[in-house]
């Protein structure tokens, strides 16, 4: 048992689930446009006692054995949170991985030939992504790696989250305070290791 303590044994996404009030649009978009196979559907009378509505819980294969799922509730009025700021609304998104530029372009082609054309294509630092809003108003991203993630990236990420923990534990966190805190962590962790670098 002790060997399991703190072991990192999770294996990716089993499924991520979202409500839909437009199952026809959702099935058209994910199954017919993107070509994601339907792999499971639970068709259920409301759960247990109470007023839980009858529903269909249906799943699309998004590769790697992972699944994207939706709930459609019979008789429930469509709800959309119109008060949510656009920034926050679009921060919530699902990014699906492809391995290559060819594969990314293929999904862009499928979207552009549909009623949901690609809205944006961006080369980020380590990935290139296409973005589209699905029939439910959810932002969806498909992304491919531009370079391998290195051990340096992982170290930097850990220093960053340590600095973020520190500055968000204090009043009025800012990027400036974050950069300063991170600099101090770097100086502490790598004290005495500096060697001069010259560029040819």
């Amino acid at each position: 048992m002790s060997t399991m303590e703190r072991a990192h044994v999770v294996r990716g996404v089993d499924h991520a689930a979202f409500p839909t009030f437009d199952p026809r649009g959702t099935i058209t978009f994910y199954r017919d446009v993107l070509g994601f196979p339907v792999v499971h559907a639970t068709c259920a009378l409301g759960w247990g006692p109470g007023d839980h509505p009858d529903f269909i819980h249906f799943f699309f294969d998004i590769g790697n054995g992972d699944r994207l799922a939706f709930f459609y509730y019979f008789g429930v009025e469509p709800y959309r949170d119109t008060a949510i700021p656009e920034l926050i609304h679009r921060a919530r998104h699902l990014a699906i991985h492809v391995d290559s530029e060819e594969h990314l372009q293929e999904y862009r082609r499928r979207l552009d030939a549909s009623d949901w054309p690609c809205e944006l294509q961006v080369r980020h630092e380590t990935v290139e992504s296409i973005y589209v809003t699905d029939p439910n108003g959810y932002l969806m991203e498909i992304t491919r790696p531009l370079r391998a993630i290195t051990v340096e990236d992982d170290i930097d990420a850990n220093v960053s989250v340590d600095a973020l923990m520190d500055v968000t534990g204090e009043d009025e966190p800012t990027l400036e305070k974050f950069f300063a805190r991170k600099a101090r962590l770097i100086a502490e962790r790598y004290a005495g290791e500096a060697e001069l670098v010259t560029f040819a």
Binding site: V151, E152, I155, D156, I186, A187, R189, Y190, E193, A194, E195, L196, V197, T198, F199
Partner: peptide
Amino acid sequence: AEVASKAPDTTVRRRGPY
């Protein structure tokens, strides 16, 4: 870092992965 190093009174050191 390479561009910055060309300015006077500027040094670049390697500190861990940075």
